[in-house]
């Protein structure tokens, strides 16, 4: 496959400060029972940050607060000179299109073709009538084909998404996120529904395609081995708080015991 040549990001993206700063973020779905407790985190504008921790510990809530699929109860999320926590309506949509997301269950529109699923990554940019009539701009369509090549699915572009395997679907999900030309990629348990071999391939793909574009990635992942292998930085969470933060090599068994062990899983 000759698709390894990186697709250069548009020129105007160069030099943007992609640092994400989270300050005192709290989320309580029910009053008095916070899932996230006063979390602060600064993510540099490059590399992969893995958030590990047992399920129900607020990882997913944290990542969904960043693009406001979940509304935080309190705190600030600073990105591209704006506080995402305060955005609404149009401003929020314009922020969201700068942030790509990869989901655990892929979340493709199954009855649309593969390429149209990739092109839905442009819905924040194109007028609705264009999307409705499938009159996407030639430049967008060409990019979608190139991204499908880059994730190894160029030949399946016109197939319906429900004919793909799980791993293939996740590749489409990654292409969709890249289609947004994002300044940040969020991945919420991208490998949890996949077998071990495919999981590695998917993580490799995310790291490579984001890395060559210099897009920072925040990934929720409960598989510690995958986190160690692909992340530049590991954040360990337990009971809604950050209990470890550092490079993978510093992550020791005592930390893991603190994150996963103890009575944490009994809750």
């Amino acid at each position: 496959m000759d698709a390894s040549a990186p697709i250069k990001p548009p020129v105007d993206d160069a030099g943007v400060d992609r640092t994400l700063i989270i300050r005192s973020l709290t989320k309580a779905y029910r009053a008095g029972q916070p899932v996230l407790k006063n979390v602060s985190l600064k993510v540099e504008g490059r590399g992969m940050t893995a958030i590990i921790g047992p399920s129900g510990t607020g990882k997913s809530t944290l990542i969904r607060c960043i693009n406001r699929l979940v509304d935080p109860t309190a705190g600030e999320i600073l990105f591209l000179d704006q506080d995402i926590a305060k955005l609404n309506g149009r401003a929020l949509r314009q922020m969201r299109r700068r942030i790509g997301m990869v989901f655990q269950e892929y979340n493709l529109v199954e009855r649309l073709s593969v390429i149209e699923n990739v092109l839905t990554g442009r819905l924040g940019y194109v007028p609705v009538w264009r999307a409705w009539l499938r009159r996407f701009k030639a430049r967008d369509i060409e990019r979608a084909f190139q991204l499908l090549d880059a994730v190894g699915l160029g030949a399946l572009a016109t197939q319906r998404a429900d004919q793909l395997s799980g791993g293939q679907r996740q590749r489409v999900g990654i292409a969709r996120a890249l289609m947004q030309e994002p300044d940040l990629i969020l991945a919420d348990e991208p490998t949890s529904s996949l077998d071990p071999k495919t999981s590695v391939e998917i993580m490799e793909l995310i790291a490579k395609r984001a890395g060559e574009r210099d897009i920072p990635v925040i990934v929720n992942i409960h598989n510690v081995a995958l986190a160690r292998r692909f992340a530049d930085r590991v954040v360990g969470m337990s009971k809604g708080e950050i209990v470890f933060d550092g490079p993978p090599r510093d992550l020791e068994d005592s930390h893991l015991l603190q994150i996963y062990g103890g009575e944490g899983w009994l809750e």
């Binding site: 299109r97 839905t120 924040g124």
Partner: peptide, 19 residues
Amino acid sequence: GPIEALKAAGAPPLAVLIK
């Protein structure tokens, strides 16, 4: 799921409805 994915990509409500 798919609806959430389109919202996360910044799609306006009408686009979420149609696509």
